[in-house]
Amino acid sequence: MAEFEREDGVTRDNLVQRVALMEAMIAEGRQYTGHNAWIFVLWGLVDLTAWAWQNYSPHTGGPWAWPICLITGVVLTLAGKAMQKSDKGYSRNDVCSRVMGVWGMMGLAMGIYVACAILTHFSWQYSYVAALLMMLGMAHAISAMFLRWKMQGLVAAVYWAGGVAIFVCNSWRATNAIMLIEMGIVMVLFGLYAMWREPRGGGKQGACA
């Protein structure tokens, strides 16, 4: 230990304290994901609704299915977050802020990308649909690495596999099925899993909103 002290003035106690703090932050970060997992469920349901509307009722405003559902999703997410913020029992740590930063940036990038693709009529291309899955996979993978959470890493791998599968299958039927599975079912299931985990992380104390 004396070697540590000689090299850069860091004592053993200081290191132990740092490690403990980092572990606590990672645990709180996972709880944060669980606490906000309703957003995954919400967006899974939004995607499923838009998909069902477009496929089963294309003559009743079919082209508007995605724009309307996406805007509704954004409004509900913002309303839900505003309600959560009024809950005083939650504080915020560094890992939570970073996880929030990743999802915030992903949401912003995806929002711009989707809006532009819809407005310029490029949303039918395989490369567009695959890029959405790749982007979601990236956000999950980064979050998984921050939180050292294998389950979220697995979800990221599933999204990336879906993105690659769209190019490999090269058909609209397959692309539709992959979108349905990934954007709807995987998102809802992961959200429910994270919500189920949250209370096991110790409830509200130390989590973040």
Binding site: A109, Y113, Q125, A130, A131, M134, G163, V164
Partner: peptide, 27 residues
Amino acid sequence: LYLIAVIASGHGKEPEYLAAVLFFNGL
């Protein structure tokens, strides 16, 4: 991974995939 999938599946002629790459870099 995305570029390999695009090129290997012959979708490299769809130039819009480059827009996605720019969005990834921005992210």
